[in-house]
């Protein structure tokens, strides 16, 4: 049961990452690799702030803001300095590795006995359960894990709701259109470059927030923790697409899909690890999965087989 709760918690934390990548990959249609760096940046910033005695909410916000700056930089590199899309992400991601080391002062910051966002819910859970563990379907689960799960659930729910509302605002619709048709948006009097910069900033801010929660959940921030995160996020989004069907166009459905995809992906990984998958092979398996998911639909289409209903008409 702890395993399932853990997978759900991890899935929800990473769905913040998926929501961030949803903005860059799906809304802006920008292949943003900054993610690997900004996740660790968010974690590092939050860990250092927490160690310095900053309250958890402010420290998490710090991770959010740090991610915002990272995405902003990638956006500026691409739009105003005309660096290629992929390269601008790679540059910032690489630079962030050093930045993260500078922020932390070392390669790993442990968070022992520092407060986290889950502290208040934990007290609440303990009071309600009347002990240190909660029984879920007959299995005892530490109150701390339940509290963490509740905290991230709330956070993800709020973020998804805000994102959905934002995409329906004047600014949000303009950003979506800028991702799909920059020419149109220029003809409507908006500098599409700023839309891209802003979108990437918000996207990486969410990734930073994901890193902030990850650090608090795992109890440490590590300079390596971002490696491969972009592919994980991509895998989640792909699974989400498959879950809700590729014909779904409403942003709300796509957001829900991304969240469900991440959770499902984490559960699958938890099961695979349980069955004896070597953790060292995890990234290889993930990469293979994304490869297969990307290739099979085109391959299947050639053979006349439909795997996902419909196709994009971008």
């Amino acid at each position: 049961m702890t395993l399932v709760v853990g997978a759900f918690t991890m899935g929800l934390i990473l769905s913040l990452l998926a929501l961030g990548m949803f903005i860059s990959f799906r809304v802006l249609r920008f292949c943003d690799i900054t993610v690997d760096g900004s996740l660790a940046l968010g974690a590092a910033t939050t860990a250092v702030l927490l160690s310095a005695g900053v309250p958890p909410w402010a420290a998490s916000l710090g991770g959010f803001a740090a991610g915002f700056l990272a995405g902003f930089t990638t956006g500026i590199l691409h739009t105003f300095f005309k660096v290629q899309e992929l390269l601008s992400g790679i540059l910032v991601m690489t630079a962030l590795y050093s930045v993260n080391l500078r922020v932390m002062g070392k390669s790993n910051v442990p968070l022992i006995d520092t407060p986290t966002l889950a502290d208040l819910p934990e007290k609440l859970v303990k009071k309600l359960a009347g002990g240190d563990s909660v029984s879920i379907a007959g299995w005892p689960v530490p109150a701390r894990d339940v509290a963490m799960l509740a905290t991230v659930t709330l956070l993800v729910f709020a973020t998804a709701l805000l994102l959905q509302l934002f995409l329906k605002t004047n600014l949000g619709t303009t950003m979506r259109a800028a991702g799909e048709n920059p020419q149109m948006i220029r003809a409507q009097g908006v500098d599409n470059r700023w839309m891209q910069v802003f979108g990437l900033a918000v996207s990486n801010a969410l990734v930073g927030l994901s890193g902030a929660m990850l650090a608090q959940y795992q109890g440490f921030a590590d300079v390596q923790m971002g490696i491969g995160m972009m592919v994980w996020g991509l895998a989640s989004i792909i699974i989400g697409d498959a879950l809700i069907g590729k014909n779904a166009r409403g942003t709300g459905l796509l957001i829900v899909g991304a969240i469900m995809g991440t959770i499902l992906f984490r559960l699958l990984i938890a099961i695979a690890l349980r069955w004896g998958l070597n953790p060292n092979d995890l990234k290889l398996v993930t990469a293979l999965f994304v490869f297969v998911a990307l290739v099979v639909p085109t391959f299947a289409a050639k053979l006349g087989i439909r795997i996902f209903g419909g196709r994009r008409n971008a």
Partner: peptide, 28 residues
């Protein structure tokens, strides 16, 4: 070229209604 294909008719028009005006976080 003049419209965003995956967005709805209403959303496309709402974007055009704001041509040359500031776009805030009001509901589109």
């Amino acid at each position: 070229a003049g419209t965003a294909a995956e967005m709805t008719i209403a959303e496309n028009i709402a974007i055009a209604m704001k041509r040359g005006k500031s776009r805030g976080v009001g509901q589109a």
